[in-house]
Measured scan of single mutants.
Amino acid sequence: MTVRVDGVDYEFSSLEEAVRFALKMAKSKGAEVQLHNGTFHVE
């Protein structure tokens, strides 16, 4: 599972870890999280 934040990809071994990271980053940026074909994008 890959989480992309500001064009940088972060790899996670589990969906749970990836979701937690994506939500944490989105909250800190006041951004939204989108899921596309198994890849999260924080914008």
Rank of each mutant, 00 (worst) to 15 (best):
S28K: 14
F21Y: 05
K24R: 09
V3H: 00
A31G: 12
A22F: 04
D9S: 11
Y10E: 00
G38Y: 07
N37A: 06
R20Q: 11
N37T: 06
V5R: 01
T39Y: 10
R20N: 10
T2M: 11
V5A: 03
Y10Q: 01
E17R: 03
A26Y: 07
L23S: 06
A26I: 09
F40N: 05
K24E: 15
S13N: 11
A31K: 09
H36Q: 07
H41R: 04
E32F: 13
T39E: 07
T2C: 14
E17Y: 02
F12C: 07
L35P: 03
K29T: 13
L35I: 11
F12K: 00
R20W: 06
V8C: 14
M25N: 03
H36A: 07
E11V: 13
G7P: 00
S14I: 04
G30E: 07
R20C: 15
D6R: 02
F40L: 14
G7W: 02
E43Q: 12
E32C: 15
L23T: 10
G30N: 11
F21M: 01
V19G: 03
V5T: 01
V8S: 03
V42R: 04
Q34R: 14
F21D: 01
M25D: 02
A26V: 06
A18F: 03
D6H: 04
S13L: 10
V19D: 02
V33R: 01
E17K: 05
M1E: 02
R20T: 10
S13K: 11
A22I: 05
V19Y: 15
V42C: 12
V3K: 00
M1F: 15
G30A: 06
V42P: 07
L23R: 08
A18C: 02
K27W: 14
G30D: 09
L23P: 00
S28Y: 13
R20E: 13
T39F: 10
Q34D: 04
A22C: 15
A31L: 11
V5M: 05
F12N: 00
F40V: 08
V5P: 00
L15C: 15
S14F: 03
S14G: 03
A31S: 08
A31W: 12
E43R: 10
T39M: 13
R20L: 10
N37M: 07
K27P: 07
L15S: 08
E32L: 13
V8H: 06
E17D: 10
V3T: 01
K29D: 13
L35K: 04
A26W: 09
F21H: 01
H36D: 06
K27C: 15
D9E: 09
A26G: 05
H36T: 07
M1T: 12
T2W: 13
F21I: 01
V8W: 04
L23Y: 13
E32M: 13
G7A: 03
A31H: 09
A18S: 02
T2I: 11
S28W: 14
S28P: 07
G30F: 07
A31D: 05
F40M: 10
V8Q: 08
A31I: 07
T2Y: 12
H36G: 06
V33T: 02
A22L: 05
G7V: 01
T39Q: 10
S14C: 13
A18V: 02
H36P: 03
M25W: 09
M1P: 11
Y10L: 02
V33P: 03
L15M: 11
S14D: 07
Y10D: 00
H41E: 09
K24F: 14
H41I: 14
V3N: 00
E32N: 13
V42H: 07
G38V: 06
K24V: 11
L35G: 03
Y10C: 08
G38C: 15
Q34C: 15
E11D: 07
V19C: 15
R4S: 06
V5Q: 01
F40Y: 08
V42T: 05
F40I: 12
V19N: 03
Y10V: 02
H41W: 13
F40D: 08
D9N: 10
T39G: 09
Q34I: 13
D9M: 11
G38A: 04
E43T: 14
D6E: 07
M25T: 06
L35N: 04
A26D: 07
L35V: 08
A26R: 04
Y10A: 00
R4I: 08
T39P: 06
Y10G: 00
S13I: 08
K27I: 15
A31F: 11
V5S: 02
A26Q: 06
T2F: 13
H36I: 15
K29I: 13
S28Q: 14
G30P: 03
L15Y: 14
S28A: 12
S28R: 10
D6W: 05
A18K: 01
K29N: 12
R4V: 08
V33K: 02
H41M: 08
V42L: 05
G7E: 04
E16W: 11
G38H: 09
L15G: 04
M1H: 14
N37F: 09
S28T: 12
G38S: 05
E17G: 03
T2A: 04
E17H: 04
H36F: 12
A22E: 02
M25L: 06
R4F: 05
L35A: 05
G7S: 03
K27S: 15
V19K: 09
S28D: 15
A31Y: 13
D9P: 05
Y10K: 01
A22R: 02
L15T: 11
Q34F: 15
R4H: 09
M25P: 00
F12P: 00
F40H: 07
V19L: 14
F40W: 13
S14V: 05
A22H: 01
L15A: 10
A18N: 00
D6P: 00
L23M: 08
H41P: 07
E32W: 14
R4W: 06
N37Q: 07
D6F: 08
S28C: 15
K29W: 12
F21E: 01
A31V: 12
E17N: 03
K27Q: 15
L23I: 13
E11L: 12
E43V: 15
S13W: 09
E32I: 14
S13A: 10
V5I: 06
H36V: 14
R20V: 09
E11F: 14
F12E: 00
A26F: 07
K24N: 11
V5W: 04
F21C: 06
S14Q: 03
H36N: 09
D9Q: 06
H41N: 07
F40R: 02
V3Y: 02
M25H: 04
T39N: 07
V33H: 03
K27Y: 15
V5F: 06
F12M: 01
V33S: 03
L35R: 03
V5H: 03
V42F: 07
V19H: 10
D9V: 11
V5E: 01
M1V: 12
V3A: 01
V5N: 01
D9A: 09
V3F: 02
A18M: 02
G30C: 14
A31T: 12
A31R: 08
A18H: 00
A22G: 01
R4L: 03
M25G: 01
K29L: 14
V5C: 12
L35Y: 13
L23N: 09
E43A: 11
E43D: 11
G7C: 13
G38K: 06
R4T: 09
K24S: 12
E16A: 10
H36E: 06
A22Q: 02
R20A: 13
E16R: 11
E16Y: 09
E11W: 14
R4N: 04
K24H: 14
R4G: 02
M25S: 04
A18L: 04
A31P: 03
L15V: 13
G38Q: 06
M1I: 13
K29V: 09
L15K: 10
V8A: 04
F21K: 01
F21Q: 01
S14M: 03
V5G: 00
E43K: 10
E17S: 05
F12G: 00
S13P: 11
E16M: 10
Y10P: 00
G38P: 06
V8T: 08
V19I: 13
K27H: 15
G38N: 08
L23A: 07
H41S: 05
S13E: 10
N37S: 05
D9C: 14
L23H: 11
S28M: 12
V33I: 11
A18E: 00
V19E: 09
N37C: 15
G38M: 07
A18G: 02
K29G: 11
M1S: 08
H41T: 08
Y10T: 01
S14K: 04
V33D: 02
V3L: 02
A18P: 00
E16H: 08
K24C: 14
T2P: 01
E17F: 02
A18W: 02
F12H: 00
F21W: 04
D9F: 10
K24D: 15
D6I: 02
D6Q: 04
L23F: 09
K24M: 12
N37D: 10
E11I: 12
E11A: 11
V19Q: 08
G38R: 03
V42I: 09
V19P: 00
E16L: 10
G38D: 07
V3Q: 00
E43M: 14
E17M: 05
E43G: 13
V33M: 05
A31E: 05
V5K: 01
L35F: 14
T39K: 13
K24P: 00
K29H: 14
D9G: 05
T39V: 15
Q34H: 14
